[in-house]
């Protein structure tokens, strides 16, 4: 056995799970899909004293509609996102993003809430939450709160979540009519973590862009928006946009790292190029 010894509990309610977390005093950890936590345990990079398995909490799983938004329960499997009719009808961007998350076999276990909670900088779902301006619903002994995705991430694998706070669901607000969404990334092989990538949501009104949201993955310590590029796009007429310029501006608002996988320079250059190409094609063939 590779993991250090731990106690395991599998509560069947949110209250009981939060109670276990509170009593653990920072020594307990949530187990959702396990597609990141299990490797961390095997490598002994995580050595919790209690593992709180949330997979038996029925109310944490499932997709529904609520107040003009699509609500995705935290333990909804990534694979479910690919086939769920409510997602296809109201939040198809999520399915576009999930297609790039790991592999068929990891998506069968991995959860939406697990990926959002983890805050891996190169992950697709945190960046998607930012671009779609999702709200993250949590529960702790102090009650329920809703945190805007834009306020959630504080650094690599760091969020504003307290040790006794559980992510319960994600709320993805409906996009305005005539919004085109894009998910593009560069990875060594399909299923690998991205070297760079972006999620875009562009609303076109009477031939001009009326709203733009751009967020990046693998381009900084957290997923990042490009507010200047978003503002620069608004009011521009489709077909007359200098996408080279906007792509460079958008990538310049990020803070990528040099590491063994790619240099910061590569990430910015490749990021700007895929932005120009993907947005150009999408707006032309709209």
């Amino acid at each position: 056995m590779k993991a250090a010894p731990f106690d395991y509990v599998a509560p069947d309610s949110i209250e009981a799970a939060v109670d276990h977390l509170a009593r653990g005093g920072g020594e307990s950890v949530v187990l959702a899909g396990g597609q990141t936590l299990m490797p961390l345990l095997a490598l002994r990079m995580a050595t919790p004293s209690v593992v709180v398995d949330i997979n038996r909490i029925a109310e944490l799983s499932g997709v529904s509609r609520l107040d003009g938004a699509t609500r995705v329960g935290a333990t909804t499997r990534q694979a479910t996102i690919l086939t769920d009719p409510t997602i296809a009808a109201h939040a198809p961007t999520l399915a576009q993003a999930v297609r790039n998350v790991g592999h068929h076999q990891t998506r069968n276990r991995g959860t939406v809430g697990g990926s959002v909670s983890l805050g891996e900088p190169a992950a697709e779902l945190p960046a998607t939450a930012l671009a779609l301006e999702a709200m993250i619903e949590t529960r702790s002994p102090r009650g329920t709160r809703r945190i805007a995705a834009g306020d959630f991430y504080t650094g690599p694998y760091s969020t504003v979540l307290e040790p006794d706070e559980l992510v319960v669901a994600l709320h993805y607000p409906d996009l305005p009519a005539n919004t085109l969404t894009l998910v593009h990334e560069v990875a060594r092989r399909p299923g690998d973590f991205a070297l760079t990538g972006f999620i875009g949501a562009f609303t076109v009104d009477g031939g001009a862009i009326s709203r733009a949201r751009i967020s990046w993955l693998a381009m900084g310590p957290t997923p990042m928006r490009s507010p200047k590029a978003e503002a620069a796009l608004v009011g521009q007429r489709v077909g007359q946009i200098d996408l080279d310029e906007i792509g460079r501006l958008a990538a310049s608002e990020t803070d990528p790292m040099d590491d063994g996988h790619a240099s910061a320079d590569y990430r910015r250059t490749a990021g700007a190029r895929i932005f120009r190409r993907a947005v150009g094609q999408a707006l032309e063939t709209r």
């Binding site: 395991y8 187990l31 396990g34 597609q35 299990m38 398995d53 068929h104 990891t106 276990r109």
Partner: peptide, 18 residues
Amino acid sequence: TVIVDGKAVRSCLMLAVQ
């Protein structure tokens, strides 16, 4: 990889108790 309740999953990323 094994099949658990009809789905292909990685058996190293699941606890036996699960």
